[in-house]
């Protein structure tokens, strides 16, 4: 376990994408996801792939970081690909051996689904998580949802909770590390034995962790009170969010992309997906 965990995956930078308004970025991300799900054929996917490459290039994030980000999804990608290749029935049989029947439609379908998953990961991470600090993200969420405060939804409280959670995750990880070392020093064993035995070994870690987390919460509440925190009402913010020409440009480009996908969907009727 590392205390230096790169939380929220943010990569420092000053690119076009980094400088977009976080409120708009959230909207852009949702819009991009919708566009990905609109795509139905190879041509539309080709256009989306091109857009994803352009986005990745404009973010100036190292490709190695992007590839590392995709690693956890390898299993899901492989799994869906295999299911599609071996189980989807079509008209053009390519391989017919014993119980294995592979159809051309299956392969194409698998390719498109894998592409879709990759696009979702790259698109959302490049637009949002790699180029937005967690704090800007919660800020953006708070302000996007602020109209909901009028119908008495606790929008500010929610974003405050998010901020504090982000603040304390590294601290608690560090603490878990310390407690584990302390238990190990007294001969505790976390890595061998049956699952039940290992789960039981976690109890002496979780109990002190929770006790200390509650104590921290109490002290933090006190400190916040001393710093005149009285909730969201009458509060100002140091950093005010500004929309700029960049956001307008990005919105325009995404609209063009969406229109392009819809047009290409009608073009290629050959390999339409049946899903």
């Amino acid at each position: 376990m590392k205390a230096d965990i790169a939380f929220g995956q943010y990569c420092e930078g000053n690119s076009f994408l980094h400088r977009l308004d976080p409120r708009w970025k959230i909207i852009f991300t949702i819009f991009y996801i919708v566009t990905i799900f609109l795509a139905k054929n190879i041509f539309a996917f080709a256009l989306l792939l091109l857009s994803a490459v352009l986005l990745a290039l404009s973010s100036r994030i190292k490709p190695s970081i992007l590839i590392r980000g995709m690693k956890p999804l390898l299993f899901i990608i492989a799994f869906t690909a295999i299911i599609n290749i071996f189980w989807l029935k079509g008209e053009r049989l390519l391989v017919d051996f014993w119980i294995i029947h592979i159809y051309l439609e299956g392969i194409i379908n698998a390719l498109l689904i894998v592409t879709r998953v990759l696009l979702l990961v790259v698109g959302t991470s490049v637009i949002l998580s790699y180029t937005t600090t967690p704090i800007a993200l919660t800020d953006g969420i708070e302000r996007l949802l602020s109209p909901l405060a009028k119908i008495k939804l606790p929008v500010h409280e929610f974003s405050m909770m998010m901020t504090i959670a982000l603040r304390f995750i590294p601290t608690l990880i560090e603490e878990t590390d310390k407690i584990m070392s302390a238990q190990k020093a007294r001969g505790a064993d976390f890595s061998t034995g049956s699952i039940i035995k290992r789960a039981k070994a976690l109890v002496p870690i979780l109990v002190p962790l929770f006790v200390s987390a509650f104590r921290r919460a109490e002290e933090l509440a006190l400190a916040m009170e001393c710093r005149c925190y009285t909730g969201g009402e009458g509060r100002t913010r140091m950093n005010v969010l500004h929309s700029s020409w960049r956001d307008a440009l990005m919105a325009g480009l995404l609209c063009v992309l969406c229109a392009g996908v819809i047009v290409l969907n009608r073009l290629g009727f050959v390999y339409n997906l049946s899903m």
Partner: peptide
């Protein structure tokens, strides 16, 4: 550790002022 609220130094320093409603 138990008195810093924000993840970024300057955001934390600003926290008290924000509570007082000072102009940005």
């Amino acid at each position: 550790d138990n008195q810093l609220v924000a993840t970024i130094v300057e955001e934390d320093v600003a926290f008290g002022c924000e509570n007082l409603g000072v102009a940005p």
